[in-house]
Amino acid sequence: MDLLRVEAISKNFGGVAAISNFSMVQPYNTISAIIGPNGAGKTTTFNMISGVQTVDTGKIFLEDVEITKLPSHKIQRFGVSRTFQNIRLIEGLSVIDNVKLSYTSRLTYTMFEEFIHSPRVRKNETVLEDIAMEYLEFFDLSKYAKSKPKSLSYGLQRRLELARALMNEPKLLLLDEPAAGLNPAETRELMGTIQKIQEQKNLSIIIVEHHMDLVMKICSIIHVIDFGKKIAEGTPQEIIKNKAVLQAYLGDMGGEIC
């Protein structure tokens, strides 16, 4: 059984195919990447897997359970977390509440219990607070727990999104251009962090990315799409040598792949 199986999904926007017949398999404990030029359909693919956009045709399975038509809050509860190309933190909530938010749906106590602050609520809250703080510490954010996300620098906000995504204890983590807006040093640090997360949490990660070196060094499988179609799949070594990829994706900057 594979963790994620995408079977020939397509999405049209007003007659224009954003992505057509895209298939992929994501095994457990793997880091893989979806790469392609701007507008190739990478984010649309993520949006369909996470339920943000509906699938026109095709099917998506998570651990052999079909999730094609599920709304995004249910897919999240199945253990799929994601981050965004444009950071999407909840401005109205504190840093720690942002992190706790992605666990909220699993809390089973009633509102009445919350109002009387029953022992069960108190116990759950402490545990929740501890886990959230652990994630904040992992990303070196604990001192900002009570601040609002807006007061954090761009790089820190990116890390906070990761912390929030992990709070859901995902089996599958989707990272949409995690290095966007980061400088080379921060990008290197991020690569280390992504690998560390994968090893420690035993989860599977798919990255949509423009930073070639990031993808080449930490991913074991790369899917290449161009104009909504998959044109190649393979290990980084295979992708580097793939003619179609060099031509379609890298074009004139073919030499700069590493």
Binding site: V52, H73, Q76, I90, G92, L93, L101, S102, S105
Partner: peptide
């Protein structure tokens, strides 16, 4: 807290399981 989250941004909370 979920209502406050949705008040800040209605599009993101579903991806937090809400």
């Amino acid at each position: 807290i979920a209502i406050r989250a949705a008040s800040s941004d209605i599009y993101t909370p579903p991806l937090m399981g809400i």
